[in-house]
């Protein structure tokens, strides 16, 4: 049963990720991203991290994808016309793809990743809280500071463009 669920969610994530990459319409791409996130959230549940799945759906599906859709509605949504790619891009794509294929193959064949005994019961919120407020206290503070800086940056960015429109 767990195997079937893994393959189901993996297929969902991969197919909708491919939809993000190939679809001409940005709205379809955003909805594909949403479906892919649902698949990944299912995988997190299978990995005994139900809290992470919850946070992923809340933050990504709830906030990030909605933000993407808002911006798509604000900007032009004309489907992009397919032009032939420049040669350098094709060469870079081939090289990068070949490197990644080699990396994945060697990972699967050579690396002896011995999996330890998986925990039977997943970590609860208490375990996360203990980790976050003892071992990772400094990163938590730094991430909070980063969020503050990001908020200030967004305010400054949107304000500046308003003034640039008014001055000329």
């Amino acid at each position: 049963m767990a195997n079937f669920l893994f393959y189901f969610f993996a297929l969902l994530a991969l197919v909708s990720a491919a939809l993000v990459v190939v679809s001409k319409n940005p709205v379809n791409a955003a909805l594909g991203l949403l479906l892919s996130l649902v698949g990944v959230a299912g995988l997190f549940v299978l990995l005994n991290a139900a809290l992470l799945a919850f946070v992923l759906l809340l933050v990504y599906a709830g906030a990030v994808v909605a933000l993407f859709l808002f911006i798509i509605m604000l900007l032009d949504t004309r489907p992009e016309q397919s032009k032939p790619l420049p040669r350098m891009t094709l060469i870079a794509a081939t090289l990068g793809g070949a490197l990644l294929v080699v990396g994945v193959l060697s990972l699967n064949q050579r690396a002896a990743l011995s999996a330890g005994g998986a925990a039977v019961t997943g970590p609860t919120l208490k375990h996360y809280a203990e980790q976050l407020f003892t071992t990772y206290l400094l990163p938590v503070q730094l991430v909070g500071f980063l969020l503050l800086i990001a908020m200030l940056g967004v305010i400054v960015l949107s304000k500046k463009s308003d003034q640039a429109e008014e001055t000329p």
């Binding site: 990504y60 911006i71 990001a150 960015l157």
Partner: peptide
């Protein structure tokens, strides 16, 4: 960090 990045990036794209 991804959430912060999306907020700033989309603001840059709109600008």
């Amino acid at each position: 960090i991804a959430a912060a990045e999306v907020a700033v990036g989309l603001a840059i794209i709109v600008a």
